[in-house]
Design a binder for these strands. Structure first.
Length: 405
RNA sequence: GGAAGGUUAGCGAAGUGGUCAAACGCGUCUGACUGUAAAUCAGAUCCUUAGGGUUCAGUGGUUCAAAUCCACUACCUUCCA
C-alpha cells in the first residue's frame, strides 16, 4: 500500500493543508519533512511519541525526517490550548531538557535522522530585522481569530511574548525549507494554526521575492484521546512519560492494559505494524488478548523488548497471584515496628495518614495478601518474608517494600 | 490613568455574621459485580497523636463570634482613556 493510504488507514491523518498535492507528494519521490518538539520538560510524553511514530512511518516509506528541538521556542512557551501562561523556563532548564529530549527522540527515529535546534538561528537574530521580515506578514486580527489563542485571550492574560510564538514556528519552517528543502511539516492537531502560519509565511516570502511559487505543506495527526474524549496520557500518578525514571516501565505497561476496550484497535493501528484487517479480527475475537498484545508492543517500542517481557511477566504474575519478582519496589529506612498508616505514608502509597486510614476502613489494603482491617495495626520486622513485604492497595496497585541496606 | 465587579477545596460552583471543614456537580480513590475493561450500585475525598488543629487570594482591623463586615495589598474581568 502507498504511503498516504497507509497513514490514512491507520488513522494518522487528521488535517491537511492541500489534500491532493500532499497525496501526490507522499506517494512520490522522497521528500524532506519536519516535526517540531519543544523541550518544555525533560522527557517526552505519549503525545510526542505518537507524532514521532508518524514520522517513523514516513521515514520507512523513504522520506527524510528532520526533528526540530525547539530550544528557542521552549523559552517562549506555546500558548496553544493553555488557559494559563506557562511558567517560564530558565535557560538552564531548557538546556537540560534539550539533551534529554534529544536522546529520547533518537530511540524512535532512524539513526541518521537530522536533529536541529531553532536556537541556532534565533540566537543573535536582530529584532528589528525579524519584525521587518517576518512580523509584517502577520495579521493580528487573523491570529486572534485562530482557535489556539482563544483560551488565553478569554482569560485575558495573553501576552505579546506568547503571540510571538507563532511567528517563530512559522519562521522555522521557512528556514528549514531554505536550508534543507523541507516542504512538509507534521505535528499534532493542536499545532495546526502554527503549521498553517508557516505555510502562509512561506507563500508570502515567495510572493515578495517574485519567485516561482513553491508551496509548503502541513499535515497533522489527531490528538491521542481516550474513548471518553479525555486526553490520553494521564495516569493516577500524573503524566504518562516516555523516560523510565519518570514513569517506570511497569506503570507504563499498566496504563495501556487499563485503557478502554474501544481504544485497543486504534492503539494497535497506531503503534504496531500489524495489518489492519488482522487487528480488527483480533479485537473482535478476543479483546483481552488483543489488549495485552497492544500494551506489550507499545512497551517494547518505548522501553525495549527485554523490559517489555519483564513487565509483562511481572504484571501477569502479580494479577494471577504468583511470584512477585518484577514488582515495583520501594526502599525505606529499617524499623523494628511501625504503625500501618505510617508505613503507607513512608512508602508513598498514600499521601497522608488520614488517607491511609480511609483506605483501610474501605477495605482496600492487603499486606502479604491478607486484608488489613485495623488501622492501628502495628507492622513488625518479622512480617517481612525473605526481606520483603508485599503491599496491595486496591485491586491494581502492588508494591514490594524492602529496607535500605 | 479612571469606573464597576470578582478571587471559595484538584476543577466548576453555592454560601452575605453563629446551625460552615463549607451545599451541589465533575474529577479522583476505595468496595461490590466483572476481564486488571466499560456500565451500574455503595462509601470516601484539608491535616490529625482522633482530643483536636489549620482553611475560603494576602495582611491588618471590627466583633463574644468572620468565607461573610471594614481598610490596605496583589491578581483577574468588563467598560472608559
Amino acid at each position: 500500500m502507498k504511503c498516504f493510504e497507509t497513514l490514512k488507514q491507520r488513522g494518522y491523518v487528521y488535517q491537511l493543508t492541500h489534500e491532493e498535492e500532499i497525496i501526490k507528494l507522499l506517494n512520490g519521490d522522497p521528500i524532506t519533512f519536519y516535526l517540531g518538539i519543544d523541550p518544555t520538560a525533560d522527557s517526552l510524553h505519549i503525545g510526542h511519541f505518537f507524532a514521532l511514530s508518524m514520522a517513523r512511518w514516513l521515514q520507512d516509506f523513504g522520506h527524510n525526517a528532520i526533528i526540530l528541538i525547539g530550544g528557542a521556542t521552549a523559552l517562549i512557551g506555546d500558548p496553544t490550548g493553555k488557559s494559563d501562561m506557562r511558567s517560564m523556563l530558565t535557560k538552564e532548564q531548557v538546556e537540560h531538557n534539550k539533551k534529554e529530549v534529544k536522546d529520547l527522540v533518537k530511540r524512535f527515529v532512524k539513526e541518521d535522522t537530522l536533529i536541529v535546534d531553532n536556537a541556532d538561528w534565533f540566537k543573535g537574530r536582530d529584532y528589528v530585522d525579524f519584525m521587518r521580515e517576518v512580523g509584517v506578514h502577520f495579521n493580528v486580527k487573523k491570529m486572534l481569530s485562530a482557535d489556539c489563542y482563544k483560551k488565553r485571550l478569554e482569560n485575558g492574560g495573553l501576552t505579546f511574548l506568547e503571540m510571538g510564538y507563532m511567528l517563530m514556528q512559522a519562521f522555522d519552517f521557512t528556514i528549514l525549507k531554505d536550508r534543507h528543502n523541507c516542504v512538509l511539516q507534521i505535528g499534532g492537531s493542536d499545532q495546526w494554526a502554527n503549521i498553517v502560519a508557516g505555510v502562509d509565511l512561506g507563500r508570502k516570502f515567495n510572493n515578495k521575492e517574485g519567485k516561482e511559487v513553491e508551496v509548503l505543506f502541513g499535515l497533522t495527526c489527531p490528538l491521542l484521546v481516550k474513548a471518553d474524549g479525555e486526553k490520553m496520557g494521564k495516569t493516577a500518578s500524573g503524566t504518562l512519560w516516555v523516560s523510565r525514571n519518570k514513569t517506570d516501565c511497569y506503570d507504563f505497561y499498566q496504563a495501556f492494559i487499563n485503557v478502554f476496550d474501544e481504544d485497543v484497535e486504534r492503539l494497535l493501528s497506531f503503534f504496531t505494524r500489524i495489518e489492519i484487517d488482522e487487528i480488527k479480527a483480533m479485537c473482535e475475537k478476543d479483546i483481552i488478548s488483543a489488549k495485552k498484545l497492544m500494551a506489550f508492543e507499545v512497551t517494547k517500542l518505548v522501553h525495549g523488548e527485554e523490559e517489555a517481557i519483564k513487565v509483562k511477566e511481572a504484571s501477569e504474575a502479580v494479577f494471577s497471584g504468583a511470584n512477585t519478582e518484577n514488582m515495583p519496589t520501594v526502599f525505606i529506612a529499617p524499623f523494628e515496628e511501625i504503625l500501618v498508616t505510617e508505613l503507607l505514608v513512608a512508602t508513598e502509597i498514600t499521601t497522608s495518614k488520614g488517607e491511609a486510614r480511609r483506605l483501610i476502613e474501605g477495605n482496600g489494603l492487603s499486606i502479604n495478601k491478607e486484608k488489613v482491617t485495623n488501622a492501628d495495626k502495628m507492622i513488625s520486622k518479622s512480617e517481612f518474608i525473605d526481606g520483603q513485604l508485599l503491599i496491595q492497595k486496591g485491586k491494581k496497585t502492588f508494591v514490594k517494600v524492602k529496607f535500605n541496606s
